[in-house]
Design a protein around this nucleic acid. Structure first.
Length: 426
RNA sequence: GGAGAGGUGACAGAGUGGCCGAAUGUGGCGGUCUCGAAAACCGUUGGGCGUGUAAGCGUCCCGUGGGUUCAAAUCCCACCCUCUCCGCCA
């Protein structure tokens, strides 16, 4: 959420920034509401001041056993006026909140302008695209052949876009998760948290999923619980409505969670395999930092995600999102993308963003620079470190052998009981 | 799920209609004292919004949201959360 006072002071700057994202925000209406609100506030607060003063006088007279009836009658009228004003104020406030919660973040000045995802820019590349001396198979065929992924029975048991992992496949998934968590906790300084997989509406609003993107989440019927689309939601909301002290910062958290996405509006896309499913595992990195450090922290965060891919030996590149592809909440965003032989292109496997104070303002996460200083909003960042399901697919495809077996990357072998290769079982 | 108890400032804990944004204690910060420290003593110590260059002024906040009243931490209603006992359960 943007700062209303900032919008009031720089409406043109905000309009221009949003235009770069391809958004038209109805700022005039918002600013009119804001003016209306402040007008009401001035009036109603005057009346309240009067009421407070007269109430004291009533109390005094009662104590002195004097008559106060005239004052009481007078205040009855004033109180009614206050009530009317308050009601109007509530209404206006609600509308303002609604506007503010639907305005996206402002892109950072270092983000290049674009009109679609085609304008995203590759900024670096690691490793060579995997070459095969044979016709490589997509991971969904490899998985079925080796009987380590079962889409068909998942369709029976649940529905489309679900899958079972079996045997070495299930273990490899677990190995990836543990490898990532261990890497980030022991080498990159993140503290592990294991979050709830459901959150309430306030939390989903805090990180920006609501109110605009409710249909992307699964909601529990009759309850104020949403299945999390990413651990970003519970972990960022850890410190909602809190004032941290500057010594606490930066805070780095890493969290494993299952992620649930309805994939509304993506019917027909990536219908096969593990790339686009309703439930997947992800290891997420979340940071709370001082505002002046957040862009350095974004670079480090992205590197931390990339380290996973380097250690696994999977070729990848990093794209910087243009203004049109930042998503609702980010001021700047990098997407590490892995080489996926079946797609013949790089596929997003992480997304590393700096939200500046956009989420912190929504979730009211603040810090105090010094004792007695007034609280400021922290900057929040997060990035996948990394998506486990897509990573499993990338390992399978890039490490497949001509005989249909899959070589296990060195760093995962300790997590696989020393196993070096996945072959058909039985 | 059933029965009961409770949610007040950083923490502990008073306050049951008016001088209570809130006693007192602890902690924090500043000071006196001291070679220094401790102790003791003195002072100070929340957040939001509006207004103002600022100092300040005003207003709101005692789990949340409504209501009663001239006036609510205090009375009423609903909800949320915590704790205890019972039931169920991985």
């Amino acid at each position: 959420m943007l700062d209303l006072r900032m919008i009031r002071q720089n409406p043109d700057r905000v309009r221009e920034a949003l235009r770069k994202r391809g958004e038209e925000a109805p700022l005039d209406e918002l600013l009119a509401l804001d003016e209306r609100r402040r007008g009401i506030l001035t009036d109603v607060e005057k009346l309240k001041a009067q009421r407070n003063e007269v109430s004291d006088e009533v109390a005094r007279r009662k104590r002195e056993k004097e008559d106060a009836q005239a004052l009481i009658d007078e205040m009855r009228v004033v109180s009614q006026k206050i009530k009317d004003f308050d009601e109007e104020l509530r209404e206006v406030d609600g509308k303002i909140q609604d506007y503010l919660l639907r305005i996206p973040n402002i892109p950072h000045e270092s983000v290049h302008v674009g009109v679609s995802e085609d304008d995203n820019m590759e900024i670096r590349r690691w490793g060579d695209q995997t070459k095969f001396g044979f016709e490589p198979l997509p991971h969904w065929e490899l998985g079925v052949n080796l009987d380590i992924i079962d889409f068909e029975r998942a369709g029976k048991v649940t529905g489309s876009r679900f899958y079972f992992l079996k045997g070495a496949g299930a273990r490899l998934e677990r190995a990836l998760m543990n490898f990532m968590l261990d890497l980030h906790t022991t080498e990159h300084g993140y503290r592990e948290v294991f979050p709830p997989f459901m959150v309430n509406q306030t939390s989903a609003t805090g990180t920006g999923q609501l109110p605009k993107f409710g249909e992307d989440m699964f909601k529990l019927e009759g309850l104020d619980y949403y299945l999390i689309p990413t651990a970003e939601v519970p972990v960022t909301n850890l410190y909602r409505d809190e004032i941290l002290s500057a010594e606490d910062l930066p805070i780095y958290h890493v969290a494993y969670s299952a992620c649930f996405r309805s994939e509304a509006g993506s019917a027909g896309r990536d219908t096969r395999g593990l790339v686009r499913v309703h439930q997947f595992n992800k290891v997420e990195l979340v940071k709370f930092v001082l505002p002046e450090n957040s862009y350095d922290e974004l670079e480090k965060l992205t590197n931390d995600a990339e380290t996973v891919l380097q250690k696994l030996g999977i070729p990848y590149r990093v794209s910087q999102m243009c203004t049109a592809d930042l998503g609702f909440t980010a001021a700047k965003k990098y997407d590490p993308e892995v080489w996926m032989p079946s797609y013949g292109r790089y596929v997003e496997i992480s997304s590393c963003s700096n939200f500046e104070d956009f989420q912190a303002r929504r979730a009211n996460i603040r810090f105090r620079r010094d004792k007695g200083a007034r609280p400021e909003f922290v900057h929040t960042l997060n990035g996948s470190g990394i998506a486990v399901g897509r990573c499993l697919a990338a390992v399978m495809e890039n490490y497949q052998q001509e005989d249909g077996s899959i070589l296990i990357p060195e760093v995962l072998r300790p997590y696989m009981g020393g196993q070096e290769r996945i072959t058909a079982e039985k």
